[in-house]
Structure formats: C-alpha cells, structure tokens
Design a protein around this nucleic acid. Sequence first.
RNA 1: CGGGGCGUGGCUCAGCUUGGUAGAGCACCUGGCUUGGGACCAGGGGGUCGCAGGUUCGAAUCCUGCCGCUCCGACCA
Length: 567
Amino acid sequence: MLVSQLYAPTLRETPAEAEVVSHQLMLRAGMIRKAAGGVYTYMPLALRVLRKIENIVRQEMDAKGSQELLMPIIQPAEMWQETGRWNVYGDEMFRLKDRHNRDFCLGPTHEEMITTLVRSDVRSYRQLPLKLYQIQNKYRDERRPRFGLMRGREFIMKDLYSFDKDEEGLAKSYDQMYEAYTTIFNRCGLTFRAVEADGGAIGGSGTHEFMVIADSGEAAIVYCPSCDYAANVEKAELKAILMPEEELENLSVIDTPGTKSIEAVTNLLGISAAKTIKTLVYNTDKGVVVALVRGDHEVNEIKLQNIVDCLTIELADEKTVSEMLGSTPGFIGPVGIKIPMLIADTTVMNLYNAVCGANTPDKHYRNVNAKRDFSPTVVADIRLIQENDPCPHCDLPVKTARGIEVGQVFKLHTKYSKALKATYLDENGREKPMVMGCYGIGVSRTMAATIEQNNDEYGIVWPVAIAPYHVVIVPVSPKDEAQMSLSNTIYKTLTTSGIEAVFDDRNERPGVKFKDADLIGYPLKITVGPKTINENIIEVKVRRTGEIFYFDVNNYLEEIKALLARI
RNA sequence: CGGGGCGUGGCUCAGCUUGGUAGAGCACCUGGCUUGGGACCAGGGGGUCGCAGGUUCGAAUCCUGCCGCUCCGACCA
C-alpha cells in the first residue's frame, strides 16, 4: 500500500470527546470515526486489524471442531417472548417494527435464534455435540456508551454456541473453548487473566471472563498471588469471619445525634467499624429488601440480586426508607424491623454486642446479638470482596486489579433448550433437552483493549500478529530518486514475500512521516536515507523497543522475517 | 434515570458577559523554498455559528423549547 493512497487521515490533536487512550489513538491514527454515540465506522487500518483478530478466532474455533455460520441481525420478537427475555432485556434492546407492525429487535445476542434453528434440525444424539459460531455486529442500547469501541452500542462479537447431550459433554466443550480463548488472546499478544464470574443476564452457572489487565478497565477483579484463584469481584465468594467470643450484654438504646454514617458512629462511641452492623434498604422488582453487612464491609449487589432473584436492584431513596421503616437512613437497624426480606451477611451473624441503628432518628442500639435480637429471612454471603480479604481457595490475602472483559465462556445448561424445547432422542429413544454453552469474544473491544495495553507517548504499538501492516518504508527525501527507487524496490520485495508493507511515498518532510508511522504503530520502520544509498545498509527500527538494526541492502529479507518472528 | 459541561469550517479552540458584515492555529488547494523527527513564505477554498421558535431595526451573542455530544452521579445509612 502506498501511503499517498491510504485512507487513514491522521490528526495532530486529540478530539475532545475521547477519554481513554485507545479511543484517542484510534481517532488520531485515522482508524475510526464516530457516526453516533457508541456507533463507529471502522476505516481501512482498523478493519485490517479486526480481520486479523477474526482470523485468529476462526482458526482456533475451527481447531476445536466448530463450524461458522451467519445468523440474521434482525430477529423476530416471538422467539424472545418464548424465553421471556423480550421483557427481561428492557431498554438495552434495540426494538423496531416492520410495515405490518410486527415486533423485531436488533440482536444483542443469539441464544434464541440459534436454539430455534438447532431444535428444528437436530433430532438425534448422533448429531451431537455441535458447536456453531458466527462473527457479526451485535446491538445493545447501552445506558452509557463510552470509551470509544470499549463500550459501544454496535460492536463486533464472535459468539459460539455448543450443544451437547449431557453435562459431561458440556464440560468438555467448555474446557475446549476455555483453551481456545487462552490461545487466542495469547496469539493477539495480550496480557490477560481468566477469572471466575457471575452469570448475569445471559443466565446459567459456571462461567469465566477473560480480562485484559488495564487500569482503564471497567471491571474489578481479585486474584491470589499465592494460588491460581482469580475472580470478578462480583463473583468472589467469602467465608464468614469469626469474631472473638464475648459475653452477651443487655440490649440498650443510646443517643447518637447526627451520626448518619458508620464513621460518625464509630467516632462518637470510640469503637471499631467491625463492631457495627450496616443496614441497607434496596428497592427491587420483588419488593423492598433490607441487607445487613458488618460496618466495614460493603454489599455485593450482584450476590444480593441472585439471592433475591430479582432483575433490578438499587438503593432505596430516603423517602422510601422513611415510609417503610419510620426512620431515616443512618438510623436503620434489624432489631424489631418489619420487612418481608431481611438478608444478613454470614459475618453479621458472628458479631457480639454490636451497634446498629434503632429505627428511630438519632438513636442506635448497643449490644445487639444476631441470634438473640433479630432473625434474618436469609443468611448468606452478600459481601463485596476487598483487597487483602482471604482467598476463597487458600485463605491468604488477595490483591485487586482492573480488567477489560474481552471474552466470556458460559455454561447455559438447559436454560434455553428447555424454554425453547430444543430436545433430542438419546440412545434409548428418550427425549432430552440439549445441554448448551455459549462463548463470546468482543472482537472490536479486543482491538481497543490491545491498544490500551500497547501504546506509548508517540502512539500505538501493535503486536505483530494483529498489526494492520508489518512494516513501513520511509524515504527521507522524496526528491531523491535513488532513495525513492530503492524504497520502491524494498516495498516490492517485502510485499511479494508475504510481508505486509506500506511505502510512505508522500512528498512530506521526514518528521511528518516518522510521526505518522509511530502514531499508527507499525511494528517495524525502514528508513531509506543517505546512509542507505551511500553505505548499502538498510536501517530498521523496532517500534516497541526503539532498537535499530542495520542490514545489508542485498540481504535483508530473511533478517526482517526473523525480526518479525522475534518481536 | 438525575445532575454538570459543551455544541462556531475536517480537528483544537477564540468571539457570547456589554447584540452591529464570523475569527485564529492545524488540516486542505496553488506556487516557491525545504527535506534524518509534525519547517518556512505568498496566495486560495471551505462555516445555514446544533435545530426550532421568540425578543429586536438587527441575534453566534439575549429568552424558551428540543436535539446531540460528553463527564459525573444513581445515595454503603
């Protein structure tokens, strides 16, 4: 490709709307342009990167015996109504009507579509297992699209669905996909971690997320430096903490004027937050729920949501709290509370002589003891893990990090096959639901995550495997015929040898061409200048390390191949 | 959903308070000059000032409504 012809208009300044580095650099490098909030055009350089990621994905999916197909983006409402997700999905689903006023949506995912397809064609255990995937645009009308391609409303996803005859088969498919994902993200040159995760809206249990480690990541994860445990904080389980045993004192009410926060209460009473109970009131679609955790702990709303089995959950406002409980936030407590759902964290049950709100403004209870003074509807782990909490596997302290979720593998079991009656006949002629899994990779997000992890002050630093081109050839003086001619020869030589090269033939000063090369992030840059002409040596600079190599002008091809293989 | 900020040429922004013929830098076109890290000189093209109303002799500027973009928040009691 000649740079004079390449449609990659670079920007010297960063557009004001871009917050994260991947977004900034993709705009500046002429890779993407915004069409609407969370909706982008992929320009030629970006598309080349996407195709490379897709091809790696294809190779690894096919290597596990999967087959690619392509399903419609426009999906009829009926199949979504059959699983109940037409309503569950809510405002995140792009909905539309056809001329006959029939409801459709733009596919946010394809469990309904694929299951409906497979149920009509697969009847026998002999046809299983089956693994089908596609790579296409997905549509989710995000509450808050942001960070460029990181959280778009239209994005490219690889989604694979596995159909097995039993749990054993599913476990095998799941393991195969887990392996394939590990290979894929390694091949893309990413530093990532597979973490245990929560099922979320897609449903099912048993799931891992593949997280690219980056400070700009939206997800918080914990990992254990001592064993191999790693999880999304939403998922990380915690055991009850045992507190030193004490004599049970008599319950008493104390005045605590103006102490609306745990911190204020502990300061006033001179006690540790670990001796208090924090009481939170939530509004859910299953009604009002009260949650209890130790004062220095935080509620994991995902865990709570799973226990309540609700779709929406948010902290109740002051008005709701007053109406329900006759007190204000800050002075709520579990003793004598009248509420249908009182959920206590396991550690709360181990507290002795604790302090909590007395359900009267400016009053707290002292010497509250769980089993004696109140009885929760449910006692469960509803606590959010924090740095230095004990690892669920080895009890040593965990660390926290941030990650970008680029892939997720799910065990769906029979959730969709039962809802959509996708069954097969087993060896004994008995009808059984297929056992399903689903496996997604955010292809466009992977591109953005790669940039988040591979950039410097000058621009992008592509890993060779997914770089838009491998090499850029920059002649220093466009008016110098010898330089231009040699550059062209090198360009032709590399191109015919299967090395993807661009030749910057523009009539620009060298600085402009160097800056653009660094911004776009070609792994190698060949500079053709007076030295090249006079001394017959080619200068090759490695984008990532800045190392410079000199190769003989008559024998550089193998050297460059070796260099590309090594970096 | 709530709150803030912003909307002026492709990009970054000034002008708005105090209404009076729309500006700069970058980018783009032409010519010259230059060529090892975003040169310089001269000339040039390009903007219904987000949209719709209103006030006014006159609106980018004041008022109202809407739209879009963006950030933050959505209460840890």
